[in-house]
Nucleic acid binder design. Structure first.
Length: 870
RNA sequence: GGGAGCAUAGCUCAGCUGGGAGAGCGUCUGCCUUACAAGCAGGAUGUCAUAGGUUCGAUCCCUAUUGUUCCCACCA
């Protein structure tokens, strides 16, 4: 115990401590009517994913909250698990197959391919979990869930059927976002828009049997193949007379009408718009209004199909080029403008998505959005910081129907069955093989559901829904959801309406939003940039506590943070500081040491106990407000500055004497470890195990500290602060005069508070390098050639013999004088301001008066000192 | 087009309901003071983006401006 190394080595500690927590079963929660529940469900990482900094931040924040509430004695459940992550996982496995032997999923067929994915999941699914453990995450591993577990799948089917029966899920042929690379439909949320440089092609459309024409402008000339009309605004005088006439579609030579529709903006471009109902969402609507034909000209892989005549088989960009060339040759290309516009891209693979009409399943959002908005607007669900509730409501108010079918194989297969004979569609929780209507053979829908459709159920499906379980009864609704602002739309909003719809209760009360972890230059960490920092490497090098501390520090909710190694180094140094302070305490304990406070507390003991009490309040309040960054800063300041730099130094002279401060040291250290534990669980648990505390148990379950009124000693705090300022003043002057610590000095303290400073004699010797300290209330007999220092409550004289440079001393005191005069002037100005005296709170005025008097007193002494020198 | 964030020390950032601004890193000076050089002591550097307003008093609240980042929408 006395031979701990001078450097904290996390590797000696972390795995062993983690195992002790698991063995102690401290992470496990059970419904317990005697206790208040506290629940967080983890944002399930992708099952084949690897831990990155974003996870590390997310998990750290959750673990802090979880450990805090566990120590507060609540029945604390952190529900862990993973997400099957439809597209992401399928892409990964397909890629692996391609690299392995060049096979595609089609070569294997659905069944074989899914076997491969399940194999993959078995291999890599545990990786992310073990990585979470490295961080110290105290999840209830007995309850680990996966979004494709049997029970979970039951919930997904239940929800689908339920919504279908309510008319909130429907199948329809509508414009959706199509990713030609993943060959699946995407929801609006899964498309990311990027400003790209493009062109604006102006094309002549000739009227039938006429030399007249209109000019349309387009950014996607290849869609011309699917045009079924040209539209103008009904009030547009330029074209009014032409409405109803027939145009000849260039290259295709199809006859299409010129129609009038309010959708067209007269001011934009030429005022004529080509209408391609099958490939543009606005045109689609126009097409419905005018009963236009939808001609789909692109295949699933974005190649022109047989409707495209000579362009058939060309990929969309090749076709674009060819069409522009042909139009130009025909003299139909009027001009080409540079044009920058937003291009939608698949959020998984980055391929430009193509709007395409397609038969898909949708969730009707409007009725669901209603309750989901109410619960946030009423403040039943709170976003931290609050501004994100606006982000949420804006989205929810304008939400479109949600396309939930995906043309993938990995995921929850849509529980819809189609009769081959009568064409009936049957939506059913259980698999069926024959049509209940005609007895014909049925086929199940080939598609799977959007991953987010299943993760939307996470807060209750993980607890056994649709069965009624004791877990749901006890732990639902959950307390906090911690996640990044980037998935509010994907996940948070969908959990909210799902919770409201299926549980008739909100899924959580607080949504704690954090920002992104960026690199040192503020860029997003990404694989393609290669600027990602691996949390596991950081843990390996600096320890999990240092990583956690770094991620929790200097950051406020909702804001991005920059991550660089120097910050981790600073955190590691802090861990080391704690380690060494603890070593010091442990080295100086005798067999009778405990954490029971003695009766005869010294002023400095009362000072640190008061400060510690303040800390308890601050840390607790900040944790309750989700100001984790402020809470951890409070701890840092207390430990390094107040406990190490002052308290330990102040009590060093008492070590080993009758008045040994060991119990106070043990008390403060053991208690501060409790407060620090949520942030730095490993090192705190380790050190706590060495301490002779009365409540000897694992720190992880040791009760949180309480604020104790009777451990606040106002007068002693004032006195010690006075001594501290005096010591600082002496250090300051010595440093200014380049006096090395080895050179001791005589100190005479003239004060009206003799007892206070007499009690502090030892402090001056140790911390202000004095060899003798004289405390007196009178200036009589003080030798000349003294440096005089004016500090709060005292005047300090340090005889310097011949060393004193009179001129320098006069200059210094003059400077001091000017400073004090300035302060006094400021205070007086304030106090002579009628408005201030009349309207400011009394406490502020009193404080200001007190300050003024203090300064005046000090100024008098400075002036006297100057007089003596001259 | 709509919305939001940010602008504070050389750098990265805190600053929680308005009462003369802090930390880490860096930097300068002096110290291996028997827990810690991953340390100790001391120092320097700020028109708290700009301009108005509210107030006795504004880094903080309001308005406008500038710069910057992001989100949503998608006029072809």
């Amino acid at each position: 115990m006395n031979n701990l190394e001078t450097k904290y080595n996390p590797k000696d500690v972390e795995d062993r401590i983690y195992k002790s927590w698991v063995d102690g079963n401290y992470f496990h929660a059970e419904p317990n009517p005697d206790k208040k529940p506290f629940t967080i469900v983890i944002p399930p990482p992708n099952v084949t994913g690897q831990l990155h900094m974003g996870h590390a931040l997310d998990e750290t924040l959750q673990d802090i909250l979880i450990r805090y509430h566990r120590q507060k004695g609540e029945e604390t459940l952190w529900m862990p698990g993973t997400d099957h992550a439809g597209i992401a996982t399928q892409i990964k496995v397909e890629e692996a197959l391609r690299n392995q032997d060049g096979t595609t999923r089609y070569d294997l067929g659905r069944e074989k391919f899914l076997e491969k994915v399940w194999d993959w999941k078995e291999n890599y699914g545990s990786r992310i979990i073990s990585q979470l453990k490295k961080l110290g995450s105290s999840c209830d591993w007995e309850r680990e869930r996966f979004t494709m577990d049997e029970q979970y799948s039951k919930a997904v089917k239940e929800v689908f059927v339920n919504l279908y029966e309510k008319g909130l899920i429907y199948q329809g042929n509508r414009i959706i976002n199509w990713c030609p690379c993943c060959t699946t439909a995407l929801s609006d949320a899964e498309v990311e828009y990027e400003e790209q440089a493009g062109h604006f092609w102006h094309i002549k459309y000739m009227f039938k049997d006429s030399d007249e024409y209109v000019i349309i402008a387009t950014t996607r000339p290849e869609t011309l193949l699917g045009d079924t009309a040209v539209a103008v605004h009904p009030d547009d005088e330029r074209y009014k007379h032409l409405v109803g006439k027939t145009l000849i579609l260039p290259l295709v030579n199809r006859e299409i009408p010129l129609i009038a529709d309010e959708y067209v903006d007269k001011e934009f471009g030429t005022g004529c718009v080509k209408i391609t109902p099958a490939h543009d969402p606005n045109d689609f609507e126009v097409g419905l209004r005018h009963n236009l034909e939808q001609i789909k000209v692109l295949d699933d892989d974005a190649k022109v199909n047989s409707y495209g005549g000579k362009y058939c088989g060309m990929d969309r960009y090749k076709a674009r080029k060819a069409i522009v060339e042909d139009l130009d040759n025909l003299g139909l290309l009027v001009k080409v403008e540079e044009h920058s516009h937003n291009v939608g891209q698949c959020y998984r693979c980055g391929t430009t998505v193509e709007p395409i009409t397609s038969k898909q399943w949708f969730v009707k959002m409007e009725p669901l959005a209603k309750d989901a908005l109410k619960v946030v607007n009423d403040g039943e669900i709170k976003f931290v910081p609050d501004r994100f509730s606006k982000t949420y409501t804006n989205w929810m108010e304008n939400v479109h129907d949600w396309c939930i079918s995906r043309q993938l194989w990995w995921g929850h297969r849509i529980p819809a069955f189609y009769c081959q004979d009568c064409g009936e569609t049957i939506v059913s929780k259980s698999d069926i093989t024959v049509c209940p209507k005609c007895g014909g053979k049925v086929n199940q829908d080939e598609d799977v559901l959007d991953t987010w459709f299943s993760s939307a159920l996470w807060p209750f499906a993980t607890m056994g829904w649709p069965d009624s379980t004791k877990e749901l009864e006890y732990f639902y609704p959950t307390n906090v959801l911690v996640t990044g602002y980037d998935i509010i739309f994907f996940w948070v909003s969908r959990m909210i309406f799902s919770g409201m719809e299926h549980m008739k209760q909100k899924p959580f009360e607080t949504v704690l939003i954090h920002g992104l972890v960026r690199d040192s230059k503020g860029r997003k960490m990404s694989k393609s940039l290669g600027n990602g920092i691996d949390p596991l490497e950081i843990i390996d090098q600096y320890g999990a506590d240092a990583l956690r501390f770094t991620l929790a520090t200097g950051n406020s909710p909702g804001n991005d943070m920059r991550f660089y190694e120097e910050r981790v180094e600073a955190s590691r140094n802090f861990a080391n500081k704690i380690w060494n302070a603890s070593r010091f305490v442990l080295m100086n304990l005798n067999d009778s040491a405990t954490d029971i406070l003695p009766q005869n507390l010294m002023p400095e003991d009362k000072w640190i106990l008061s400060k510690f009490n303040d800390l308890v309040k601050k840390v607790t309040d900040n944790l309750d407000k989700f100001e984790l960054g402020v809470a951890v800063q409070n701890l840092y300041d207390f430990i390094w500055d107040e406990f190490c730099d002052w308290y330990i130094e102040l009590v060093k002279p008492r070590m080993g004497t009758e008045n040994n401060p060991q119990n106070v040291l043990v008390y403060v250290l053991s208690n501060v470890l409790k407060l620090l534990h949520p942030f730095m669980p490993f090192i705190t648990e380790e050190i706590y195990s060495y301490l002779p505390v009365t409540d000897k148990q694992a720190l992880i379950i040791t009760p949180w500290c309480e604020y104790k009124e009777d451990l606040i000693f106002k007068q002693d705090v004032e006195n010690i602060e006075m001594i501290k300022s005096a010591i600082k003043a002496i250090r300051n002057i010595r440093s200014e005069m380049n006096v090395p610590p080895s050179k001791k000095a005589k100190i005479i303290i003239v004060t009206q508070k003799e007892t206070v400073f007499k009690n502090g004699e030892a402090f001056f010797k140790k911390l202000a390098w004095a060899d003798s300290v004289l405390v007196t209330s009178s200036k009589d007999g003080i030798e000349e050639n003294c440096i005089s220092l004016v500090t709060e409550g005292a005047e300090i004289f340090m005889p310097q013999g011949d060393l004193i440079d009179k001129e320098k001393e006069i200059a210094r005191l003059t400077q001091e004088k000017v400073k004090l005069e300035g302060e006094i002037l400021r205070v007086e100005k304030k106090l002579s301001n009628e408005g201030f005296v009349a309207k400011a709170p009394k406490a502020v005025i009193d404080a200001e008066r007190e300050k003024g008097e203090k300064y005046k007193e000090m100024l008098d002494k400075v002036l006297e000192g100057l007089k003596n020198l001259q």
